[in-house]
Nucleic acid binder design. Sequence first.
DNA 1: TGTACATCAGTGAACGCGCGTTCACTGATGTAC
DNA 2: TGTACATCAGTGAACGCGCGTTCACTGATGTAC
Lengths: 204, 204
Amino acid sequence: MSDDTPSRRSSYHHGDLRAQLIAAVRDLVEAHGPDGFSVAEAARQAGVSSAAPYKHFRDRPELLRAVAAEGMDRLRDAMEAGLAQHPAGSLQSVAAIGQAYVDFARGGPGVFRLVFGLTEGHEGDPLLQEKGSSCFGVVLRATAAVLHLPMEDAAVRERAYMLWTCVHGHSFLTIDRKTEGKFDMSGDWAYLMGISAAILGPRG
Amino acid sequence: MSDDTPSRRSSYHHGDLRAQLIAAVRDLVEAHGPDGFSVAEAARQAGVSSAAPYKHFRDRPELLRAVAAEGMDRLRDAMEAGLAQHPAGSLQSVAAIGQAYVDFARGGPGVFRLVFGLTEGHEGDPLLQEKGSSCFGVVLRATAAVLHLPMEDAAVRERAYMLWTCVHGHSFLTIDRKTEGKFDMSGDWAYLMGISAAILGPRG
DNA sequence: TGTACATCAGTGAACGCGCGTTCACTGATGTAC
DNA sequence: TGTACATCAGTGAACGCGCGTTCACTGATGTAC
């Protein structure tokens, strides 16, 4: 953290191109959707020739995949942080994970769609798959704690998956504006606590 | 239904271009995602010059919107049909709506994503919004019947929305292959009945 | 039944555009001696 | 500390491509008389 002013690199070498390209693509994906970016435009935003990105990424899909991977890391961190804010085993801890998830989606709908959309280039990428499982692991842990059951228990997996579908669906419906008018609970939290109670039982 | 062999129109006029373009775009969207189609390719598949589509659609977005609208109609019809298969007020009737929804998603992931994704061209299209509300109306009706409450009751809206998020999330996770390994209930039906019971209470 | 004409769904050629990617290159940087 | 050299992150020009859209056109169809 000496001189990371993000734009004005006057030296010949850029020094931070890889990270800055990822940031540029992230912005483009937010602005135009997961398919609405181009390597050329990302290069332009990073102030660099259109050939430069190929020094850091094999091709367009690899660049996209890097953005998705970075997004998934942020999501998992946010979920962990949410979980840690409440006592283990409380419904609140589960709802907080959901809140982190929804916030992530709302805060970056483009990246959220990218991460969960198998967009062209990263159909079965094992790295992304592993990161996804790691996110689900957070839900599993919280669910097991609420139910006082081991994580491997079938009921835990079942309930955790149900929670995931709800939060995932709510996130998508929110960012896709399908929710307006049809539904007005007093914000996400009421919804998340309601759904957690319904799925995990009314004990707190 | 006199001679609708879909490809071989040897007359100068095509006669069925509009419908055939929509079908072509539907196929392309399934093959390459909501953004992965081109007017040119659709024209090619319909056996027509690349200028011909513009006799039926103002521009690319309008063609996409037509495909989305047609998709939403099919979804609503399927939901209604599912609902009608079981006694009104039964948990099964609710699960059947969910099953129709999931089947629709699995049967045409591309169109499903298109319909629910505000892809570039149809951000706030009132026609699509109305068709979406009409889908939600089916869920509302079924929920009200189960709960023995009027459709306008706040609890009905709340529970119906919860159901929708779950089914929507399950659909997305399924078509995006995020579900493999993590979860293996014995198919959709067990999941749908489970979630209906959790959200609407254990009464049958 | 026959003819004149308006309509309109098609053609095919052309346009300008931005993209992904490659290529030979250049100049800054780090290392070995 | 100084020099030679390998490395490698950048440049900028060029390529071929497919796309969305427009345009003047043509030929089939339906209708009025």
